[in-house]
Amino acid sequence: MRMLAGLSPANSGAITVSGIDVVKDNRAVREVMGVVTQHDGLDGGLTVFQNLFLHGFLAGLSRKDSKNRAHAVLEFFGLRDKSKANVYKLSGGMKRRLAIAWSMMTSPSVIVMDEPSTGLDPQSRNRVWEELAVLKDVGVTVLLSTHYMEEATILCDRLSIMDNGKILDEGTPDQMIERHAPKEVAQLRVSPVSIRTVRGYLTEQNIMFREVGALISVTAVNGDRPDLSGLNDLEGVRTSYRAGNLEDVFIAITGRELRDG
C-alpha cells in the first residue's frame, strides 16, 4: 500500500493504477488516487477547513477550487459545523473521518486506505463505514486493508486474505465463507469454575475448538452442529450458535490460534 502511494521504494514487480505505472509515473498516479495512511497525518496547527484547503492546494487545485471543494467535502461528510475547529481538539473518530474527507479533496477515482477504522469506537466506525459505502455508490474504487473481519464483510466486494506478505486466497466474502468456514459455530461462554471440565470434554470427544478468553468456539469436523450434549448439565456454560464468518475463514486459512482437540 505504501508502494502504491510512493511512500515505499518498489524492489521488484509492477503496479498499475487506472492504467498508470506507479513506479515510473508516481506523480500522475497520485493525481487520480486518494490515500488515507494508517496515521491521520493531519496538521494539528490548522483548522479542519484549513487542512482540507491545504491538501487541495498541494494536490494542484487553484485556491478557489480548493476552497469550493473543501466546502463540498465538509458537507458530504457532515463536518460543516466543525470546519473552524482546531484539528488537535477533534476526537479520534472525527480525525479519521477528516482524513478520509481529505483524501476526497481531488475527487479521486481510486482511494487507498490503510486500516480506516482501527482504534475507533463503534459509533465512529459505523459512521466511517456508512461514508465508505456512499463513496462506493458514487463509483469510487476503494482498496482497504483491515484486521477487522466484520469490516471486510460489510464493505468488501472482493477480498484477499494475506499472511506474511502472501495472498492465501481471494474471492467475495460469501465465496470465502463457503470455501473455508464451517456452516455453524457453537460459542460457549464458560465461567472459570467449569473451564477445565469443558476443555476436558471437548478434547475427549475429539471436537475442534478455539479458546479466546472466556469464549470457546466449537466447530464440528464435518461442519455441522457439534454434539455438545455432554455439557448440558454443567453450571456456568452458556451456549449459542452463529453462522460461520470471515473470522473463521481467516483463522482456517492462516492457521493461527487453531487448536485441534
Binding site: G6, L7, H39, G41, A59
Partner: peptide, 17 residues
Amino acid sequence: YRIDNDVYETALTTSIT
C-alpha cells in the same frame, strides 16, 4: 513535528515531492 506526526507523509500522497 511534521515528520513525527506524519504530516509530510500525508502531504506526499498528493502530487508534491
